[in-house]
């Protein structure tokens, strides 16, 4: 049973990490706790569902549609809401509240258009075959999510480390002003970050929507709360933190179900979070990795 639970923890952890990727990218570069990320995640899933049921796209097509649609949405949010706030140097609470408003708009617009009831992707979109090894059951989709989380994480880290663009982004994360003085196109990179982060949110929306078999207007809400926990655990704004924090939260939740009792699951997870903050204010792995992004 423990082996199965560890596999459960790995896949749940990767689900959280997948969501937290875009969330943490925005925080790392823009310094904004983007509370509309849950809604952007949801919109991406709905866009993909529409594309699949009307155009009959396969899974990869759905992922591209979700990435593009959410990405553009993220860009629009940046242009209309975050950029003006940056321009007047608003304290970091202000953009957070603006993104709450954006989240309300998106959630209720989707509910107005598609209704509040659950919908789902057509079943043939992804194989729900179970693979059993030594009494451990794991589905193809779970394996896909685990693989993709690690791959996206590796890709992002590589891009940040090795490319010109990545170096520029890291400079911005350190100090946007200094980066600007170095001749880096700070605004342009902010747009790019908003686009990519939202796009990643859209991809997460499709995969998590497939995983739980349900799309609904409020699907981003509980993910957002978990996402906040993940980025704190992992050290805020640290890209590797998204994966480590996700895995840690997944493990904490699964083990507390297995050994403490499922009704205390979230109390254990959030209690741990509270304690960790008190003992290590920069997050569990924050000091391990001094560099942001």
């Amino acid at each position: 049973m423990l082996a199965q639970q560890l596999v459960n923890a790995l896949s749940l952890g990767c689900v959280y990490a997948l969501f937290a990727l875009g969330f943490t990218l925005i925080f790392g570069v823009l310094g904004v706790i983007n509370l509309s990320h849950g809604a952007v995640f949801m919109v991406g899933a709905y866009a993909a569902e529409q594309a699949v049921s009307h155009l009959g796209l396969p899974l990869w097509g759905a992922l591209i549609v979700a990435f593009a649609f959410s990405g553009v949405l993220g860009l629009v949010i940046d242009l209309l809401v975050l950029r003006p706030l940056r321009a007047r140097n608003a304290p970091h609470l202000i953009p957070m509240i603006a993104t709450i408003g954006v989240g309300i708009i998106l959630t209720n617009a989707i509910q107005g258009i598609f209704g509040a009831q659950n919908i789902r992707f057509p079943e043939q979109l992804v194989s729900n075959r179970t693979i059993s090894v030594e009494g451990i059951d794991v589905t193809a989709l779970e394996l896909g999510i685990i693989l993709l989380s690690f791959m996206l994480m590796a890709l992002l880290l590589l891009a940040l480390k090795k490319t010109q663009l990545g170096r520029a982004l890291r400079a911005i994360a350190e100090s946007p002003r200094a980066a600007y003085l170095l001749g880096i196109n700070v605004e342009g990179l902010f747009y790019l970050t908003s686009f990519v982060a939202a796009g990643l949110g859209g991809i997460a929306g499709v995969l998590i929507g497939l995983y739980s078999n349900a799309l609904f207007p409020l699907m981003g809400k509980s993910m957002l709360e978990k996402g906040i926990a993940v980025i704190i655990l992992g050290g805020m704004g640290d890209m590797r933190g998204a994966l480590i924090g996700g895995l840690f939260l997944g493990l904490a939740e699964v083990l507390s179900v297995a050994y403490v009792g499922s009704s205390m699951r979230d109390a254990v997870a959030f209690g741990l979070l509270f304690l960790i903050l008190l003992i290590r204010p920069r997050g569990l792995f924050g000091t391990l990795m001094e560099r942001k992004v």
Binding site: M1, S11, L12, R265
Partner: peptide
Amino acid sequence: TETFAKGDVDFKAQLTKIKA
């Protein structure tokens, strides 16, 4: 007896325990 919360997407930890 196992519980879950609104908005959960993963129930395998509880179900694994139930199966046992």
